[in-house]
């Protein structure tokens, strides 16, 4: 019981410190804005941000949902194209030589610059936002998956060879699980990139989404709403990151350190 109590106390202290820091920041911000009479369009006070964002609460879920759909859709699309491409590249030297130059070129082009072209080809709408998000998120998945599949212990592969195991069996039972931690570390990067990609697509051409809201409120000098939407966007990013991290803990528990004690304070 005593152990539980100390853990609980420690957790409360940790969260308490974080909360305190946030509160201090917000209060300081509010006070400074009032004392120095900072113009609303330049830097709105937290109370102003809350009030103005609250005012558009009726349309927020729709915009939030649109961006969330583009992020999740783009992320899934990046996975279902990225992982098979990595598998092809690992198993076929020919495809590696053919595909890699294209991948590198695609990666070196700034996606922001690519977005207008993609929208021109595919048209406006959720599906094109997903595709833009996917093109941004896809590269690290390909690279990490390929690295993971190739990093399998050489002696382990010799063992499978000594058993005359089929390529398919070795893939499903050895290579893919071996690559899983690599894949997940790329997914954690990819999900945050997917958020960027979705917002970029919404900037370029869209009639809904959080990116679109930022763009319109900026046009209308509604800086307070921009701040509110930015906060929502970062919440979306953080939540989706933790969703991936949670899936990682569930799917590759062997990879995580066995010592889960919190660091000593």
């Amino acid at each position: 019981m005593a152990a539980v109590d100390t853990t609980l106390r420690r957790t409360l202290i940790e969260y308490g410190q974080t909360t305190l820091a946030v509160v201090v920041l917000l209060v300081g911000w509010e006070v400074l804005c009032n004392v120095l009479s900072v113009p609303k369009w330049l830097l709105p006070a937290p109370s102003q941000i809350a009030a103005d964002t609250w005012e558009i609460r009726a349309v927020l879920p729709m915009h939030f949902g649109a961006t969330l759909a583009a992020v999740v859709g783009g992320f899934v699309l990046a996975i279902v194209t990225g992982i098979p491409i990595a598998v092809l590249v690992v198993y076929s030297p020919f495809l590696r030589r053919v595909i890699f130059p294209f991948l590198l070129t695609l990666q070196s082009v700034p996606k922001v610059a690519l977005a207008p072209l993609l929208l021109l080809w595919i048209g406006y709408g959720l599906h094109s936002n997903m595709i833009v998000a996917a093109t941004v998120a896809f590269f690290p998945i390909v690279i990490n998956t390929a690295t993971g599949l190739e990093s399998v212990d050489k002696e382990l592969l010799e063992l499978t060879r000594s058993l005359d195991a089929s390529t398919a069996r070795v893939f499903w039972c050895v290579r893919l699980p071996w690559a899983l931690p690599y894949i997940f570390s790329s997914l954690k990067v990819a999900i945050t990139l997917a958020v960027i990609g979705a917002v970029v697509a919404e900037f370029v051409g869209s009639d809904k989404g959080l990116g679109y809201l930022i763009l319109t409120s900026s046009g209308a000098m509604k800086t307070s709403v921009m701040f509110g939407v930015l906060l929502l966007l970062s919440l979306l990013g953080i939540a989706s990151f933790y969703a991936v991290a949670w899936a990682e803990r569930r799917l590759c528990p062997w990879y995580l350190p066995t010592n889960t004690d919190p660091p000593a304070i």
Binding site: D153, E155, L156, S162, R169, V170, P177, W254
Partner: peptide
């Protein structure tokens, strides 16, 4: 033929029991 290497090269995600059964799966 059975092989044992210098390093154990076990599958880190499998339990001891499942690691022992691993060759059977590879053999089908």
């Amino acid at each position: 033929v059975g092989m044992v290497f210098q390093r154990p090269v076990l599958l880190p995600w499998r339990s001891v029991f499942e690691n022992v059964l691993f060759p059977l799966e590879m053999l089908g």
